[in-house]
Amino acid sequence: MNDDRFPDSELPGHGRELRHYLTGAAVTLTLTLAAFGIVWLSVLPRYWTLGVVSVLAVLQIVAHFRYFLHIDLGKSHRDDLLMILFTSLIIVMMVGGTIWILFNQFARMM
């Protein structure tokens, strides 16, 4: 291996990052299994199930960003994090508003 190209300081990074990915795989897999399991076994009442799988989904999305997309609270990712948070805000407003408006209209048509 050419030292000029691959400074020594980066070499241990490989193992660390590999662990990072594998941890991510384990976390997301667990969350997926939990979500499917809860619905499959229908252990909870419907509205509880919906709430729990929604929370699990949010957690899993955070895990994807954390482990696979390498977005963390580090300073170097501040721009990207802000962008993702701003997008989340826009999405919450758009999706929340849409659902609110359409369900309200529907209720008043009944």
Binding site: A35, F36, V39, S42, R46, T49, L50, V53, S54, L56, A57, Q60, I61, H64, F65, F68, L69
Partner: peptide
Amino acid sequence: SIFWHMLDVVWVAIFTFVYLSGVAR
């Protein structure tokens, strides 16, 4: 690779809000 990971994120939303929420009793 970023694109691919992002499609997985979208799929998480789809399987939760379409499939899981659809069949939850």
